[in-house]
Amino acid sequence: MPIVTMNVNGKDVSGDVEGRTLLVEFLRENLSLTGTHVGCDTSQCGACVVHVDGKAVKSCSTLALSAEGAKVTTIEGVARNGELHPMQAAFKANHGLQCGFCTPGMVMAGLDIVKRRGKKLKEETIRAELEGNICRCTGYHNIVKSIQDGASKM
């Protein structure tokens, strides 16, 4: 089996994978980073969003081998020194999560939106940008508020 090597949340890691192993499987099964979730099998729900070389990708439709040599950030790598990142803190302050299952993907997508669209985000912008992330609990109201708030505090 081929060996894949990448940097995940600041740590160099490597592992045996099959050609068909998905990045999400590598993260969850090889590295036990279970914060990245799988909520669908058609790349629609976004529970699996991680950052690869600074870009948000759906790790359920990315081959682990294609991330060879990449710098990967998962939800576990967002908080620093035990302090929530401002985006995470905003989700908590604005009740932007309920069951928590879509939350890692929402936070990672939110960070990516800020990176691409800046810190002053309109509600319509956030709603349009979240088209690749599904939440069934919150009705999005507080997720939109959380991302707006988190962005302004970054």
Binding site: R28, G35, I75, E76, V78, A79, Q88, L97, T103
Partner: peptide
């Protein structure tokens, strides 16, 4: 009151069945 359970979900440390 902000939720006591949020930190584990926000940091990817929730413990769902598939985990």
């Amino acid at each position: 009151v902000v939720r006591k359970e949020d930190n584990r979900f926000l940091t990817g440390r929730g413990k769902y069945c598939d985990d």
